[in-house]
Simulated scan of single mutants.
Amino acid sequence: MKKKKGPPKSLAAGRPPVLHRTKTKSISRKATKALINKYHLLQKRKQQAIARGDAAEEAAIDAEIEALGGIKSYQEASLQGQRHDRGGDSSRVLMQWLEPCLKSRLSPDKTVSGRRLRMLEVGALSTQNACSKSGYFDIERIDLNSQEDGILKQDFMERPLPRDESERFDIISLSLVLNYVPDPRGRGEMLRRTTLFLRTPGQFVDSPELAASFPSLFLVLPAPCVTNSRYLDEDRLAAIMASLGYARVASKTTQRLVYYLWRRERTGHGSGGPFLKKEVRSGSTRNNFAVVLD
């Protein structure tokens, strides 16, 4: 009998916890990539086995994961991959985009209209990244497994909704978070949910420079999620974001990552949906990363 679909899964269902920052043995870039890719593949197969109710297959996959060294080995590889010399702090790209207008439009005490810009950093790993050091933002940081003071242990999908405008944010950072959501509909729901936490567009009527960048969403994904997916490319992602009221301000693609800054330019949802799981590229080498928005 076909199982009834439940509510969208929380981020905790897919994203592995982050290892405590103890000193770890250096791992080569090639070995790091291979281990992370293998772990992701096993996690995907495990989710499929769970969806089918195949307990035997689930147990077999768990055994394979343990043979790789389990979650500890994966976390060590992930932290190794986040080192500064491997492009670790993605917020440096965000600051390259934002700093020119922030320097020119904010007051000497880095406020605008008597207040500081507010940022919500989802999946925060550090309180010492480029955004934090810039001094331009009052930042609330959340992560499923907080590793230091200043980062609240919280699942974004379960975070209480803002009660009023004062509890909303000028910018939300989703850096390497969406790809950990285990199913396409959950990813769509996460993107939709960001709109509920951003300030109403039109806050900076006296500053066209700030209005061009805020309120906004900073989105970072592994490059293959967009460049080599069977179900997602740049045009489809842009259409999904437009249906949520977002317009692309800036983007950057490297060998490993894609970076986007999306400005929230209207409230409510536009036309263009629904966005179901539809093939946009063919080929046996494509991955199956998808975003579904009903």
Rank of each mutant, 00 (worst) to 15 (best):
K4M: 12
K5Q: 13
P8S: 02
S10P: 15
G14D: 12
R15Q: 15
P17I: 12
H20Y: 15
T22F: 08
K25Y: 03
L41K: 14
A59H: 04
A63G: 08
A63W: 08
E64I: 00
E66Q: 05
E76V: 11
G81M: 05
S91K: 11
Q96F: 14
P100W: 01
S107V: 00
S107D: 13
K110L: 01
R116E: 10
V122W: 03
L125N: 13
A130R: 15
C131D: 01
K133N: 13
Y136D: 06
F137N: 02
R141L: 00
I142E: 04
S146N: 04
S146L: 06
K153S: 11
P160V: 13
L161S: 13
R163Y: 03
E165I: 04
S166W: 00
E167F: 03
R168A: 06
R168V: 06
Y180F: 14
G186E: 09
G188D: 00
E189V: 14
R192G: 11
R193M: 11
G202L: 04
G202R: 01
V205M: 13
P208E: 05
A211K: 01
S213H: 14
P215R: 05
P215Q: 03
L221M: 07
R230K: 02
R230Q: 08
E234Y: 10
R236A: 02
A239F: 05
G245R: 05
A250I: 08
Q255A: 15
Y259P: 02
R263A: 08
T267Y: 09
G273A: 01
K278F: 08
V280E: 03
R286I: 09
F289H: 01
